[in-house]
Design a protein around this nucleic acid. Structure first.
Length: 376
RNA sequence: GGGAAGAUACCAGAGUGGCCAAAUGGGGCAGACUGUAAAUCUGCUGGUUGUUACCUUCGGUGGUUCGAAUCCAUCUCUUCCCA
């Protein structure tokens, strides 16, 4: 994997660059749609490509490990072939499930002991086993196995948690270097900076990951309960330490506003379930802010779904029609809303990149934030 | 013509003397959702009022009772069964 930093904004930390992977180019800043089980809920990969111009998508180690299991992925020839996506892919390690499935797991020094949310069966995820699993899945970018620390963790816990993540990180890189790609193309491993909401822990964590000379670096453990302003300041602390010549990935973020603020602070890559999940729940992201298409006010609005939208659904369908589809719980509603939202997110980062290159990112961003609404 | 059951809030449907402004679904209205246990979850859904409180409601009318959606009488309507 290679990263070329192409443009740097004069008035902010915003950057535009290009990542080269074995499965193609990624122009940054980029948003990566989340397809946890190697599927974008409600969108054909074909449409993801042709309608939203998605350049890289996510899948999840924990979920793919449980279903369909590594035997099937290996037999399929890796995740790209299995799900028919020929572009770049990234796998999260299961570190987020340490957080989101806290109710069914025990953290130990060796790793995380999960009890499957599907059938209750027990599975131990160690840094080594996760590296092996991510090798088998075969994504272009593998994430280190970490503990995603809750945003409201007290300092003592955050410190202990970070220390565990750092010991695991060392084991991840050891295993990563001891093993080879299964399918012949290169894979990269990104470490994840934790440290919760404590600036000194974040800075120390950022310093610590530098030793691995990774192809890219991630900022994790944000947008997990802490105030948004705190998230922004943590990004600043970490990005001040991370190298300029490697991509920075802010994990799990976020709202359109969060993404613009992240870009302004030097983040290159984002992922979030928000456009897909919220879309399925009737929330549409637009340049005028979010709308809840289930609200009665759209019942007789026969204007285009989104006159500024870039996907075919935006001009093909009306707000009234999508409102109706949600009221009837039609499957088509989920497809339309999801495609629209993912299309919007990718248009958002394309525009950001364009304005970074044009040299007017800051003023453009200010205007857009006003348009979207300051909230969140 | 004879017999039986029933009428409850937008709909369906519990309740069968006080704890009932009335369970539960559905529908409706709004909100939440950030490395996906999520096509999910939460709140509200007679009126006025600040969660206290009061007022008007359980087919109509009239009773019994300290007190009625609940008991009695009667009327109207609905459904089913037998001819």
């Amino acid at each position: 994997m290679e990263f070329v930093l192409q443009y740097k904004d004069a008035l902010s930390k915003a950057r535009a660059g290009e990542i080269t992977t074995s499965h193609g180019l990624i122009q940054t800043p980029i948003f990566m749609p989340v397809g946890t089980a190697a599927a974008m809920k409600g969108i054909f990969h074909r449409d993801l490509l042709s309608e939203t111009s998605a350049q890289i998508i996510l899948a999840n180690t924990y979920h793919l490990y449980l279903r369909p299991g590594m035997d099937i992925i290996r037999a399929a020839g890796g995740v790209h072939r299995f799900c028919s996506w020929s572009g770049p892919m990234l796998t999260d390690s299961g570190g987020f499930q340490v957080f989101s499935l806290a109710a069914c797991r025990k953290l130990k020094e060796d790793g995380c002991h999960f009890q499957s949310h599907i059938d209750g069966s027990r599975h131990v995820f160690t840094p080594e086993s996760v590296m092996d699993t991510e090798r088998t899945i075969g994504a272009d970018i593998m994430m280190a196995f970490d503990e995603c620390t809750p945003g409201d963790a007290p300092r003592d816990y955050a410190k202990k948690s970070l220390a565990l993540t750092e010991r695991w990180l060392d084991r991840c890189f050891n295993r990563f270097h001891q093993t080879s790609p299964v399918y012949g193309y290169e894979q990269s491993l990104f470490p994840i900076v934790q440290g919760c909401t404590y600036a000194d822990l974040r800075e120390q964590a950022a310093q610590n990951v530098l030793q691995y000379k990774a192809d890219g670096y991630a900022i994790g453990g944000l947008a997990v309960g802490e105030p948004t302003d705190v998230m922004y300041s943590m990004i600043e602390v970490v990005n001040a330490v991370l190298p300029q010549d490697r991509p920075r990935y802010l994990m799990g973020v976020g709202t359109p506003q969060n993404i613009l603020e992240g870009i302004e602070r030097g983040v290159d890559m984002f992922d979030c379930v928000m456009p897909t999940r919220n879309g399925r729940n009737g929330q549409l992201f637009t340049w005028q802010g979010t709308i809840n298409i289930r609200n009665k006010k759209w019942e007789n609005d026969f204007t285009a779904l989104d006159e500024f939208g870039t996907t075919f659904v935006d001009k093909t369908y009306t707000k009234a029609y999508l409102h109706h589809l949600f009221a009837c719980k039609e499957l088509l509603a989920l497809q339309i809303a999801t495609l629209h939202n993912v299309g919007f997110y990718l248009e958002l980062v394309r525009e950001a990149r364009k304005h970074i290159i044009n040299g007017d990112f800051s003023s453009w961003k200010g205007g857009i934030i006003t348009q979207l609404g300051q909230r969140r």
